[in-house]
Amino acid sequence: MKKFTRISIAATILLLLSLQGCVKDSKQALFQTGDASAVELRSFQSRVFDTTDRLKTLKTVIATLQDLGFVIAKADNDVGVVSGSKYANRHSALMTVTVRDKNETQLFVRASVQQHLKAVEDAAIYQDFFIALEKAMFLKAHQVD
């Protein structure tokens, strides 16, 4: 009997320990961010292109996403937004790309990716996208200052 109690106490402690990784309230995810700061995130996710042709840029973004295996789910040229999803079983990803005027000679492109129920904060993944986009645009992607 005593032995049984001891085992059950140990089991309870183990169970509670295993719950440590869980959040108290999953609604907190609404405004939760990852490890990267907002400034860092913007620097991974954004590039500037020396063009003012927004429609052409949006079309090139769409073509690039298709090359990368994305299904284009939404596109709006008034706001300058393209969203898509790439189905790759457990590595599936969702992505939104926005294109807006930066100044009289340049456009600003920002990409945000979600994968594995998280916002992607890996600079290399965004770099892959901008390398592909640069090639398709025939233009250099400048880092945002």
Binding site: D67, L68, K86, A88, N89, R90, H91, A93, M95, V113, Q115, H116, D122, A124, I125, Y126, D128, F129, I131, A132, K135
Partner: peptide, 13 residues
């Protein structure tokens, strides 16, 4: 075949 895509290669040509 699908899983050949590594998680980090999701945006790689």
């Amino acid at each position: 075949k699908e899983d050949e895509i590594l998680a980090a290669d999701v945006l790689k040509l």
